[in-house]
Amino acid sequence: MKSINLQRTESLLMELIPEALSSMADERIRSLPITGVNCKNGKYDAIVYFDGSDYDKNEINQIISLLKKANGRMKSHVLASTGWYKCPNFKFVNDTSLEQSRNIEALFAKISKDKKEEE
């Protein structure tokens, strides 16, 4: 169970990270949808999940590389917006849960269709 303060931190980062990304030069990360933030070790580390379902593996690796390069500017934006003394280190991960849920929905639709055809 996460503390209320940690949940607040994650919620605030969910707002601030897309703001910071929107000011970046590269279009691929400027409009990147952030799907979640999971803080670890208090506020020292944060895993940032993004939806990369529109990209192939090579493009996702490029996006992660771009996000790593933009890490400093994003930290500066978060610190300026919050007044915190320290900002978490961001680690970026492609969120595959959306793609998995789509696959499950498609599977259920196929099962439903097959059952109707059997009747």
Rank of each mutant, 00 (worst) to 15 (best):
A25R: 11
V48H: 01
L67I: 11
Y55P: 03
E59V: 15
L98A: 04
S81P: 09
T35R: 00
S3C: 01
Y85I: 14
M24E: 14
R102K: 14
R8N: 08
D56V: 10
Y85S: 13
K40S: 10
E59A: 11
D95L: 08
M1C: 01
C39D: 10
I63W: 08
N5F: 04
I60D: 08
I4S: 02
C87R: 06
G42C: 06
G72D: 15
L6S: 06
K68R: 10
F108Q: 10
R28I: 15
C39L: 13
P33H: 05
D26A: 03
Y55I: 07
L98N: 04
D95K: 04
S81F: 14
A46F: 09
Y49V: 03
A109D: 14
V37F: 02
V93L: 13
K57Y: 08
M74P: 01
L6H: 02
E119Y: 06
L16T: 09
V37T: 04
D45S: 07
Y85P: 03
S65D: 11
S22A: 09
I64M: 04
P18G: 04
L79T: 15
G72A: 12
E118K: 08
I64H: 01
S22W: 01
N89I: 14
L13F: 01
H77L: 11
K91D: 15
D26R: 04
S3F: 01
K113L: 09
N61G: 12
P88S: 09
Y85K: 13
L13H: 02
L32V: 00
G72N: 15
Q7V: 07
E15P: 00
S101A: 14
E118W: 05
L107M: 12
M14H: 01
V93A: 09
K116R: 05
R28V: 15
I63C: 06
R102Y: 12
W84A: 13
S97H: 06
F92S: 05
N89Y: 14
K91N: 14
C87G: 12
D54C: 04
K2A: 06
V78M: 09
V37D: 01
L12D: 00
E10F: 01
I111Q: 07
K40R: 12
S31G: 07
V37L: 03
A109R: 10
M24N: 02
D114K: 02
K40D: 10
K115M: 10
G72P: 05
D45T: 12
P33A: 04
S112K: 08
K116C: 00
L79I: 15
K86E: 12
I29M: 03
K57R: 12
D114Q: 04
P18H: 01
L107I: 14
D54R: 08
D26L: 05
L12P: 00
M14S: 06
N41V: 12
E105F: 07
E118I: 10
K110T: 10
A70D: 03
R8Y: 07
I4D: 02
S112A: 13
M24S: 08
